[in-house]
Design a protein around this nucleic acid. Structure first.
Lengths: 251, 251
DNA sequence: TATTGTTTCCGTATGGCCTACGGAAATGGG
DNA sequence: CCCATTTCCGTAGGCCATACGGAAACAATA
């Protein structure tokens, strides 16, 4: 299921961690073997390599050659750790403001897509109650600024913002799903579809699905490229059309 | 993480189950206590009430007052059961073909949204390697037919199809995330944001986020409605603009 | 009725997960 | 040296999927 995220924990503690508010100095007491940043880095490394499902507290502790329970001294729990991981990778986008508002939104989409590519486990992190850290906030500011520059009314800026964010994150997530499955199952998307050839042979009903049949006969599915290419092209097309629509609403 | 789905299992077995190919009659042997349909129904009931995370084989078996391992006689494993659940709820859409192509796409979006509302765990089911059952296939045919009627070239129909499907499923998933979290954590979205008021008080940097600040001052965030309303309006807007863009590309 | 072949039912066991609890170990100051 | 403080971490409880193999139910046959 979607990985649970900062649920019961104290919001103030989580937000302080997200913004790396330094804890008041501790002059006495045992020296820490690990830092919050080390934990986040190790957790991201594990999730990158083995998926979010494999990112257990025990596994991260092992990575740092530390006892499992030591992590809980630095991080409230697994849900909060995932928040920290997500905000950290969103910061990698490093957004630069050049060009028209459309260029900037496409830049945002590309950078966000790159984050998902590099960290496929982001697919499993819900962005509905997002980690309110710098990575997320900087991205929001960037998109809002672009939309405001486009000339939308303030009220429409916020509406369009949610639509664009939804499209971008959704597209990036879908695109990455395939790779994630590939890593987990060791089977590529193309091979997966190949193994289901028997569906088309034995179950596909030409009369029930006339449009699919005629599209097939018209060669609409002879793309030449891989599945991933097709999906990426489709999302580029979709974003373009969404921006066309937003732009058209201005006139 | 995203719930794993039909991975290693025999595709032929899964597809036969999806299309309810009746097993050859077994004249002899012990009578089954449960059927595949009963298992699917019980699993959906559990997931509806308690989330996909709580939908364990043991929990479903308990629901049916049957031993856990009995389920494995009828269903290859948990991944395949999730495929069967997903296709079953997609069949609930019951799509009717009236109106313009735009009306039909919006109808599709509404019905799909309703499925996610009724079965929030769908958020966690990846649609990249979808269950090739009647629920999914009927939906695809429906959208493809609408786009073909719009007058798109065959090659553009398939591209637009992926974009629209991505938007609709992505939007429905986002929209539902909130409710899912609400059930799981017992905290509403509005209350969640309220508990993070301290973020705006203590961490929000007006100079770093000028656009957000000015939008706030312009009253763009005084929506009046609940969070869910805002999100739904945004996705209606986004779909409308996406269709505008697709339509505009025809001229 | 007793036997046999077939099918379903399901108890057990393995190896994983998160994290509450509380004691052990380390550290700097008096 | 002692002690307050802080971090480290072993244990334990209660979840999960599913491989394995024997027990139980049933129809046909003898």
């Amino acid at each position: 299921m979607a990985a649970e995220r900062s649920g019961g924990g104290d919001p103030a503690r989580t937000i302080a961690l997200l913004w790396r508010k330094p804890p008041e100095p501790k002059p006495v007491g045992r020296k820490p073997k690990v830092s919050v940043d080390q934990i986040i880095t190790a957790a991201i490394a594990v999730a990158d390599r083995e998926g979010l499902g494999a990112m257990s507290m025990a596994r991260v502790a092992q990575e740092l050659t530390v006892g499992t329970m030591s992590l809980y001294t630095h991080v409230p729990g697994k849900a909060e750790l995932i928040d920290l991981m997500a905000d950290a990778v969103l910061q990698e986008r490093d957004l630069t403001s050049d060009g028209t508002w459309r260029d900037r939104i496409k830049h945002y989409a590309d950078r966000t897509r790159a984050v998902y590519q590099a960290h496929p486990w982001m697919r499993d992190v819900s962005m509905v109650r997002p980690p309110l850290g710098p990575g997320l906030m900087d991205g929001q500011e960037f998109v809002l600024a672009a939309l405001a520059d486009a000339g939308l009314e303030p009220r429409h800026v916020t509406t369009a913002h949610i639509a664009v964010e939804g499209f971008v994150h959704g597209a990036a997530a879908s695109e990455v799903d395939d790779q994630q499955l590939e890593e987990k199952t060791g089977e590529s998307g193309d091979s997966w579809w190949g193994a289901r050839q028997l569906f088309w042979d034995d179950y596909f009903d030409v009369e029930r699905y006339p449009t699919m049949t005629s599209l097939w006969n018209a060669g609409a599915y002879d793309t030449g490229g891989t599945l991933s290419d097709t999906v990426r092209d489709s999302f580029d097309y979709g974003l373009e059309k969404l921006l066309d629509g937003i732009e058209g609403g201005l006139r």
